[in-house]
Amino acid sequence: MAWLGCYLTTPKHMALWESLGTVLLLLAITAPAALLMGFGGASAARSRIPPLRWIGKTYIALVRGVPDIAFFLFFVIALDQGIEYARQLILCPDWHEPVRQGNDFIVCPAAKMPPGTASAFVHAAYSFALAVITFAIVFGAFAANVLYGAMQAVPRAQMETAEAYGMSHRQAYWRVLVPQMWVYALPGLSNLWMVLIKATPLLFLLGVEDIVYWARELGGAKTPMFTSYPHADWRVWYFAGLLIFYLLFTRASELVLDRIMARLTFGQATTAGERQRKGAA
């Protein structure tokens, strides 16, 4: 037992725990960002100003229509190259060599992103930021779709009542529609949250040294030559641990989301709300 405790706290394992933190950090940043993007997208799609509405609807349709990890691979490269190209246009206006030289993508040295002189931490942070942006945009579109549906699902009578009370369009939106839509949005959003949790191992594909990477590294067979903790191929145990981590995480989320749902349902004009009302009486 003491041996195991010592084994699990080697510097390499500390990197594993850190990457576990990376995953949680990614979730903590992406979830609100995606929700915000989604809220913006859904509001834009409902807007009375045509161009804004078109942008919102296009955003939802575009990202939803291309469902694949191919999208993830493609998007990160495109984003990376796009940033470098934009920096080149700003930073070195005199640079006139074509960006695509045969098979290579070349920008002027000053426009390299991250700069060639930067530390390893900056490189890691940059690829992490790219991943966060990708996740936020993709999941934002999904959230936008859910929220748009939820806004439509709020009973029409509620909005009409708000108008009858003389509320302006904006007031009715913020005071009546937005507080009520969450109960309709939550099933979709919680489903999205589960998908987001399960999407985190894809960080590995985006080049971040995440838990999948470390589980593979640390589990591999070790010989006394390279480490003071030689062991055989333990990758199966590491991945079993990973599997259990995700299962526990999913289960905990389910329980929390159920409670939030119960809270949100309180006093709503839905079947579940009605049942709650009768149960209390």
């Binding site: 399960k198 999948v212 593979r216 191929d233 990758r235 991945f239 599997l243 289960r251």
Partner: peptide, 22 residues
Amino acid sequence: IFVFRGSPLFVQFFFAYFLFLA
């Protein structure tokens, strides 16, 4: 159903591969 729906397919693949290797 919970195990296969609650964990990422990606991790399932890795786990199964190393399990089969072992």
